[in-house]
Nucleic acid binder design. Structure first.
Lengths: 145, 145
DNA sequence: GAGCAATTATTAGCAGGCTAATACTTTAAC
DNA sequence: GTTAAAGTATTAGCCTGCTAATAATTGCTC
């Protein structure tokens, strides 16, 4: 390998790592008795921090596409965790709110998620984090032109 | 953020980056007239480099699960790119081979993929690559205990 | 060698990522 | 004000990731 980019390694490593993280999160959710997928959690997390957010905005913040947000919200509504309310100013939009059960879920799951984040990061330090962000952002940017 | 792991950032960044890479690859495939998904390419790549490989082994090398490998191979067989041959020693196994069309596809797509890898890695250097590998492996390891 | 456990691959079912097409609403242009 | 363009959300259809259950074969143990 004369240049790192000649290898499949970086695509593969990113792919494998994100799968691992997802697996661990999901298993921990299941073991904790949370009836929730990782992506459902991601939406709940954002709604909790941005009550009344639009689906559009949710899609942008999570880098999910609109149809996916629609479907995940459908499931969350069905579970009684989240509510769609017609927007007053713009009738094309919904404002998304947590229901009481959703708030409960958020508060129950959050500490578990934080613990997993800590576990994953382990002994890596601030400098590592800076490298990590720089490299990831760089790859992203290199593909955004 | 007192500690990087307190933020959603690293999970999110990895997730977003891999999505970006996949999108760029797929779009470039489409624009080049390749009738191929990214994951179908990944399997072709591995079969090309390991003719006769078993599905099991393919799953391991690609970190895909067995049902996914089965389905992707079904599509590749349907497209005439790949062939399943009964293994002589173990009749539970298939040996996977590229068909002539598959080899053609491999040789046609590979340079495009290499070019995209190069583009993504951009001006990052060997040292960055070392950091990248170390951090990713570390996260993976922290979740494998 | 009979019976049981492990291995290999498949099927079915749910969830999420993507594109394309559609319905509805708002905004802009004339 | 009417019409055209843009924005918001949904639906449908394909592909992939995951789990659980199944079928077929092999290997192990007695």
């Amino acid at each position: 390998m004369t240049h790192p980019s000649d290898s499949r390694a970086y695509f593969f490593k990113i792919d494998t790592t994100i799968k691992k993280i997802r697996n661990v999160l999901q298993k921990r959710f299941n073991d904790s008795g949370f009836d929730l997928t990782v992506d459902q959690w991601v939406l709940i997390d954002h709604v909790a921090r941005n009550q009344g957010i639009s689906q559009n905005m949710l899609a942008e913040l999570t880098t999910k596409d609109a149809p996916t947000v629609t479907r995940i919200l459908d499931l969350l509504v069905k579970k009684g965790l989240v509510e769609r309310r017609m927007s007053d100013e713009d009738r094309r939009k919904f404002n998304i709110f947590l229901m009481p059960e959703g708030t409960k879920t958020f508060e129950m799951v959050l500490p578990v998620v934080k613990e997993i984040r800590r576990q994953g990061w382990g002994e890596l330090n601030e400098e590592d984090y800076a490298h990590f962000v720089r490299i990831m952002d760089s790859i992203y940017q290199n593909f955004s032109e």
